[in-house]
Amino acid sequence: MIACGVVTLLFLTFGITAPYGKYSRPGFGISLNAKLAWMVQEAPSFLVVAYMAHNNSSEIRNAPNDCLLCLFLFHYFNRTFIYPLRLRGGKPTPLFVFLMAFAFTTYNGVLQGQYMTQLASMNRQTDLAFWVGLALFTVGWFVNYHSDNTLRSLRRPGETGYKIPRGGMFEYVSGANFLGEIVEWTGWAVASQSLPATAFAIFTACNIGPRAYAHHNFYLKNFPNYPRHRKAIIPFIL
């Protein structure tokens, strides 16, 4: 997963911008309804881990493990069943993008679920890293959720086109929603202190970091009054 993350970072930075959302364009074959594609492609992350957690009879079960499993399922319940239903509009998703996302969420669901239900053996209620990680996850989730709501509220029902997002972390970066998700999974990795969780956090940053940079350039190109002090993904730095 880490190797795939590095390849993805290089491809999305120096190759092409993934052709979905505002970057949808002809020439990428069959396309699917955006809401349906998103719901199905994200579903394995929730369903696979929920199945493993439900059938977990391992002796390693403890409060920290269960807490991290619940946080993972909490995030993906929202991303799978709530977020896509709240989307306004949404350009069609190319089939090959959908298939790659579905393959990744299936693989990651198996990887994280297998580790957390069968292999992890942590008992870290007094471990500072565990609590710092939970705090980071919480902050990241709220930034991500608030940013998604901000983007959703930019358009009234029936409206099309793009507007400058304002408020919250959007005052500092163009990809506030992406920043929130990166902080989320970084916190989850810190709390877990495991290689699978760390690999997921690295892949997340490699995958959505370039998209935040693409968004930043899109805003600069299309809005002459776009705030020049904003960065792409890391406040005051990048």
Rank of each mutant, 00 (worst) to 15 (best):
M1L: 14
T8L: 15
L10M: 11
L12E: 11
L12H: 04
F14P: 02
I16N: 08
G21M: 05
K22C: 07
R25T: 13
R25V: 13
G27C: 08
G29W: 00
W38R: 01
W38Q: 03
E42P: 00
S45Y: 05
L47Q: 06
V49W: 02
A50E: 06
A53K: 09
S57A: 12
S57V: 10
D66H: 13
L71N: 12
L73W: 11
F74R: 09
P84M: 02
L95D: 06
L99V: 15
A103E: 02
T105H: 01
T106A: 13
G113L: 10
M122D: 09
N123D: 15
R124S: 15
A129E: 12
T138L: 10
V139L: 14
G140R: 04
V143K: 00
D148C: 12
T150M: 11
T150D: 03
R152L: 15
R155K: 11
R155I: 05
T160W: 10
Y162G: 06
I164D: 04
R166K: 14
G167T: 05
G168T: 07
M169N: 04
M169S: 10
L179A: 09
I182R: 00
S192T: 07
F203M: 09
A205D: 08
A205K: 02
N207F: 04
N207P: 14
P210R: 03
Y213N: 11
A214H: 10
A214R: 01
N217H: 14
N217I: 04
F223Y: 08
P224F: 01
P224I: 00
P227H: 01
A232P: 14
P235W: 00
P235I: 05
